[in-house]
């Protein structure tokens, strides 16, 4: 069966959940083979995790270049592994870096590129990718017609399912091509202790109606009671009330949780583009005319500073 290469995204020695989702999807298309780059001493543990989710082979490479230079070393490695194994397709997580890696790999392989897939299935002539476009108002199904498909997949496209496989580790020597920007300093993001925004089953977001940075306290309290991630609208981020890393919307994160709670968010197109595909949507807003109410399964017209704490108390039950 054809090998489907999965670039395994990892941080702090841990496999990130979207990589397990990619391995799960890869099994629909062929035999998953994981690619683990620059993991240092954690490579073996990461390889074992990939094997647990179906990787028959795990290609590993380690070199200082993977952290010292931007994007290009990973492109070198992934391209060379794809060529050597004659991979049937290459899957990468849809992050900013993931898409950049995928694009350059596609160009080097002479392959068509599809980004931001929300689903993947095997078709008569290769993988069929589903995308959600124009602020999630359309679903598009596409195929790659030239070369081995290179596809980036958004987090939460599928629930990761274990399927233990051999996970035979193959160390790879990579020929680095250079011409890359160098990383001169790195400040790891301080973890909030909450779930990753793009990976969370529940997201609670605050917007202009939160009124101030301190106002996010009630949003965070509810999120913690529900085990949820915290999001923010662009208005709240631009006002400096919450970090940009938590921005939900066209220019921030696109999330698709089981439950999305929008507090004090009007629902401008920029925001809707980032959350419209959530399964259940709930909103609390003072303005009964707010466009967010067009999307909701349940909406409360009211003050978030009274409604949210009441809900939090109930959730803590």
């Amino acid at each position: 069966m054809t090998e489907i290469l999965v670039l395994v995204d990892h941080a702090d020695g841990q496999v990130r959940k979207p990589a397990l989702e990619l391995l799960t999807l890869a099994r629909r298309l062929g035999t998953p083979a994981a690619v683990v780059l620059g993991a240092g001493d954690n490579a073996a543990a990461i390889a074992a995790k990939a094997a647990e989710y179906g990787a028959a082979t795990v290609h590993t490479a380690d070199a200082p270049e993977f952290t010292a230079q931007l994007v290009v070393p990973k492109v070198d490695a992934l391209t060379q592994i794809a060529q050597a194994t004659e991979a049937g397709a290459v899957l990468v997580t849809s992050s900013g870096e993931g898409k950049e890696i995928a694009a350059r790999v596609a160009l080097r392989l002479g392959s068509g590129l599809i980004t931001d897939a929300v689903d993947l299935e095997a078709g008569a002539s290769g993988p069929v990718a589903t995308q959600s476009v124009f602020a999630a108002s359309f679903q598009v199904k596409s195929t790659v017609t030239h070369g081995a498909p290179v596809i980036t997949v958004k987090p939460n496209a599928v629930a990761p399912e274990p399927a233990p496989a051999a996970g035979t580790v193959q160390a790879v020597e990579v020929a680095f091509t250079g011409n890359a920007a160098t990383v001169t300093a790195r400040t790891p993001r301080v973890s909030s202790g909450r779930p990753e925004l793009t990976e969370a089953a529940i997201v609670v977001s605050g917007g202009r109606g939160v009124g101030a940075a301190e106002g996010f306290g009630v949003v965070e309290d509810l999120a913690d009671a529900l085990g949820a991630a915290v999001g923010a609208s662009r208005a709240a981020v631009d006002a400096g009330w919450y970090p940009h890393t938590n921005q939900v919307g066209q220019t921030g994160k696109q999330v698709s949780p089981q439950l999305y709670i929008a507090a004090g968010i009007s629902g401008a197109i920029q925001h809707r583009a980032g959350m419209q595909t959530s399964k259940t949507i709930v909103a609390v807003n003072k303005d009964p005319e707010a466009p967010i109410f067009e999307l909701v399964d349940y909406g409360i017209v009211g003050d978030l500073f009274t409604v949210l704490p009441q809900l939090t108390a109930q959730a803590k039950g």
Partner: peptide, 11 residues
């Protein structure tokens, strides 16, 4: 500014 870290880069 990436998901895991903020990096200073130059070229």
């Amino acid at each position: 500014d990436g998901d895991a870290a903020s990096e200073q880069v130059e070229a």
